[in-house]
Design a protein around this nucleic acid. Sequence first.
DNA 1: CACAGTTGCTTCGAATCCGAAGCACATCAC
DNA 2: GTGATGTGCTTCGGATTCGAAGCAACTGTG
Lengths: 174, 174
Amino acid sequence: MTSPRPSLDATQLGAYFALIEASSLLKHAVEQQLREAGDLSYVQFQLLATLGDSPAGSQRMTDLADGVVYSRSGLTYQAQTLEKRDLVTRTPSSDDERSTTVTITDEGRAVLARVFPGHIAVLDDLLFAPLSRSDVETLADILARARDHMRQTPPRSAAPRRSKKPAGTTDQAR
Amino acid sequence: MTSPRPSLDATQLGAYFALIEASSLLKHAVEQQLREAGDLSYVQFQLLATLGDSPAGSQRMTDLADGVVYSRSGLTYQAQTLEKRDLVTRTPSSDDERSTTVTITDEGRAVLARVFPGHIAVLDDLLFAPLSRSDVETLADILARARDHMRQTPPRSAAPRRSKKPAGTTDQAR
DNA sequence: CACAGTTGCTTCGAATCCGAAGCACATCAC
DNA sequence: GTGATGTGCTTCGGATTCGAAGCAACTGTG
């Protein structure tokens, strides 16, 4: 950051690094707690929590994938893992033979309930402890805006201009 | 499902989810850009950037690991990968035979320089675009506080005051 | 109805990650 | 010195991730 880069200013860099570091640290801590308390990975917890929050306790694979940030294949893997442990069931949808409906089981809800208190505790201790009430509100507001913007921004806007991919053009190598 | 349990309030949950989602989305986007522009993973970029920022362009493995959030073994893996591509060199430290000093090469700096503009562009488009100047300042301040707190909080404090367990659930096989 | 294009999910291979165990050097007693 | 500990890094095995390719079921057009 002491480099002569005419791009981001110190504040922006600070925000960026703080965001990445804080989320990484938090995620690691949460992951560890989940592993110890219920032998769950973070994704697995997210899936169970999402399902537990759903009206019927079930969702289509695709809708689940949209809620979480992970890939479809990764979701398949985790869903299978959860199914093996009887925390969810997977059944073909009735109106569309292709889609799979994932449903949380009582056992799944039990694990969720067992893990939740510790999860909250970690968040309180690590994330919320050093923040005031208004800090949290502000944080929620700003990050929600950023998230919403990223969600609706075309995933490919990263590289400025690029249309069709004609051939093995050694893409933008400077 | 907003159960009647003494959990987090809506604002806290919102902040938590927004933090996780925003950082995940951003990281994915950045990762993709880095991959396309310089065939670097996010960790590799972080390592190169950290080294590039260092006075002599070099650091001990351990110090590097502290800067990044990843594990020692993961760092070893990535350092080896970078070394194979001649983006860094690794030499035993002179005063301590055990430690390894990692140094960025000119080639490494070149890759860094090639990748940087696109990196900035992604950040501008995805993270900073929907935020005002003061938003960024506030965000940086709050997250920096959270991060610093997490860094100095003992790693094992996951479940501090929570010793009660739901019946004689056989603990994990150790 | 037949066909082409979509959509939903899974399988496959490769890359990456972590924790535990192991190895080698350092440091601290005595 | 010499052994007991500690520190720095790597190796090992296993888990998790992704993208690309594949399969099966839907949809739209004539």
